[in-house]
Computed example of a mutant assay.
Amino acid sequence: MAGKGYKGKTCAYCGIDGISSTADHVIARAFFLLEDRAHLPQVPACSDCNSKKSALEVYVSAILPIASRHEDADKFQRDFVRKRIENNAKLQRDLRLDDPPQMVNIGGLIRPMHPIRIDAVKITGLMHMILQGLFYFHFGRPLSGDYYPDVLMLHNDAQAAFVASMSPYLDGGENREVNLGRGSFAYRYVRSPAYPDVTLWNFFWHNGVPLHGSDGIGANHWWGVTRPRTETVAREKIKQARGSSSEQFE
């Protein structure tokens, strides 16, 4: 979907100025039921980034709703998931849907399950782009080149330490919660008051799609963080050191 207001702008994903050619839905319409597709976040995107993101969306939109906890989960699976998988032979092979069930330890209980073998690289790649797109949508510009987006899933016992490590930069910062499509995609963020490119996010698909690793321990949401690159931190430390040296001789 192209719009005059989105052409010739800075691409929200690659950050190249004046290159955008279209409006991109940060969270693709394919993730929502027809009645929930109004007023979704859009940002300017170049054709290359738009194509790259679209390819990831085709894959992810076919698999995440399989484990949906949405109030209309049955409708998602009936009207969208089955059709997308049935019409995509390669996806059927990649998911290995014909494999026999495996016994999996889920919270201490051994249960037979048909594990869906997902491509973590594709899902993570899409989540990176969504993080970049939402940063642009909310703050009106792309993430600075001195910073990078990171997306991860954390076990419950690791989350407290992770949040504590970020708290000194985020205390008192702007924060917001957004729910799209009645839980089809929800997120919240906190933005550093001192470092505007430093942000922390939570992302939830379909009211918290549960994902489990081989250890049986899972998580139901993603964490997103935008933080300075290693060379940016080093550069700032050098500046601070030079400033301290200059003060000593004044």
Rank of each mutant, 00 (worst) to 15 (best):
M1T: 14
M113H: 11
A219I: 01
I85K: 08
A23D: 07
A219S: 15
E231F: 03
H114W: 04
F32S: 05
G125N: 06
L33D: 04
T232V: 09
S20M: 05
E236V: 10
V121I: 10
F249N: 11
I123A: 06
A241K: 13
A73E: 09
L143T: 05
K237A: 10
D215V: 05
T230S: 07
E177A: 12
W223F: 15
I123N: 01
R84E: 11
A73V: 06
P149I: 06
K237F: 11
P65G: 07
L211R: 11
T124I: 05
R235F: 06
S68P: 10
P193G: 12
E57C: 00
V104D: 07
S184W: 02
C49W: 04
A241R: 14
P65F: 05
R191Q: 14
V198H: 09
R93S: 10
R111C: 07
K83Y: 05
G208I: 05
V58P: 00
Q92I: 08
H39S: 13
W201K: 02
A38C: 10
P115T: 03
E247Y: 12
K4Y: 07
D146C: 01
A161E: 12
S167H: 08
P41W: 02
K83V: 10
A30S: 15
R235K: 14
H39V: 02
D150Q: 13
K122Y: 01
N50Q: 14
G183I: 03
L170V: 05
I130C: 09
F185K: 00
F137G: 05
S20I: 01
D72Q: 13
L91T: 07
V104Q: 13
S68Q: 08
L109I: 11
Q102P: 01
F203D: 04
P115C: 07
L211V: 12
A62K: 00
K4S: 14
L40M: 13
P44I: 12
E86M: 09
P65L: 08
D17Q: 10
R182A: 10
S144Q: 02
R182D: 12
K9T: 04
V225Y: 00
L64W: 06
F135M: 09
Q248V: 12
V225P: 00
I238P: 00
K90S: 12
D74Q: 13
F137P: 03
F203G: 05
I130V: 15
Q132V: 08
M103I: 14
L109W: 07
D24L: 06
Q240R: 12
M113D: 02
L131S: 05
L109F: 12
